[in-house]
Amino acid sequence: MISVVLPARNAAATLPAALDSLAGQTLDDFEVVIVDDGSDDGGATRAVAAAFSGRDSRFRLLSRPHRGIVAALEAGIAAARGWAIARMDADDLCHPDRLLRQARHLDANPAVGLVSCQVAFGGDARAAQGYQTHIDWCNSLTSYQAIRLGIFRESPLPHPSVLFRRELIDRHGGYRAGDFPEDYELWLRWLEAGVVMDKLPQTLLTWNDPPGRLSRVDSRYHTEAFFRIKAGYLARFLARINPCHPRVIVAGAGRITRRRAERLLDHGIVIEAWLDIDPDKVGKRVAGRPVLPWDAVPGPEACFVLPYVACRGATEEILDRLQSRGFVLGQNCLPAA
């Protein structure tokens, strides 16, 4: 059995479509644990969930006081009976073959602990261009190696798209509460523990973007929260792969880039220099370190470069320049923004 854990709060408007998409799955052997996280919409969300559970035994409703997404996920997983846990949100849509394809992939690949899929954007791509760009980037990471090397830019796995083996929670721990995005921290921790993550080439989920989505309104999903939580994981990853450890050169010398990169200092990383193209910075010392032009950067045998510029497209341009000089992703350079 596959267990779908679906937290919902004040979701009466979108929950019927989400549950309908699950009811129409081509996989028969699954359950849906709907966790009503203290909805205060006059019982509307509970009524929708209760109606589904009343006519289809695969759907179960848990009603709890409002304690947030992590507590709701913990409650849903504790109540789940399946060998694998699928995530789903109350405002997204599963395509009919999603659970079947993902379950078959885990069954056929015992070394894989988690599988995601391609996702379609359910919002207005023009009005939410940044969200569409993020989805396009997520969909471009189609292998474990790409996910492993891309994780330090941003989260490469849309949370409601994943299916993972329940045993991973027993081995490596589940969701944690804190001032950080709970899914991103979980992916970082599991990847650090050696969990193999894969992504199917099929589009099996429509990821909607309503105005009240937590990633838009909750401070735990603010950009700075991502940089804060990943610093320690990134530092430990660098300790394993950087032949010049603990020394790095950070691409980008702007104020925001410096502030984010300097979080690594608390974890033993030494930033030797900045790399930049701004003529007002090149050749000077910024925050006590020299700002190097491109032609002064040592070769790949003598340094490790961290592109830390978050501007869309800048990281790709930096990596292209580095790779043209013989740098190899994951060996002597790694994008961190």
Rank of each mutant, 00 (worst) to 15 (best):
R260H: 13
A75L: 06
R166T: 14
A75V: 06
S116K: 08
D20T: 03
R220L: 04
A251K: 09
D97Y: 03
Q331G: 08
D320V: 05
A314P: 07
I147R: 05
M197E: 00
E272W: 08
I69K: 14
A302K: 15
C138Q: 15
V270T: 09
Y221E: 05
S215Y: 14
G288L: 07
L275A: 11
G313C: 06
L238Y: 12
G326N: 02
V248I: 14
G82S: 05
L61H: 06
L100V: 01
G113P: 03
C94H: 13
V112A: 10
Q145S: 12
Q132N: 13
D91T: 11
V270L: 04
F52S: 00
V119F: 00
P210T: 04
G330Q: 12
W274E: 09
V4P: 02
L319V: 12
G288F: 07
A239Y: 13
H172S: 07
S155F: 11
D40G: 10
F52W: 07
S63C: 10
P290H: 04
D28R: 11
L27F: 02
V305P: 11
N10P: 05
L6M: 11
D295A: 10
S140K: 05
V291N: 03
P243Q: 01
H245D: 11
R321S: 10
S140A: 14
W190F: 07
L292I: 00
S63H: 11
G288K: 08
L191R: 03
L322N: 11
L27C: 06
A120N: 09
R325K: 13
L334H: 12
H172F: 15
I151Q: 14
V291C: 01
L157C: 15
S140Y: 06
G150N: 09
H267Y: 12
R171K: 15
L319H: 06
R148F: 13
L22C: 07
L149R: 09
T257W: 02
G194A: 02
L163I: 14
F304P: 09
R171Y: 14
A253D: 10
P298R: 03
A120F: 06
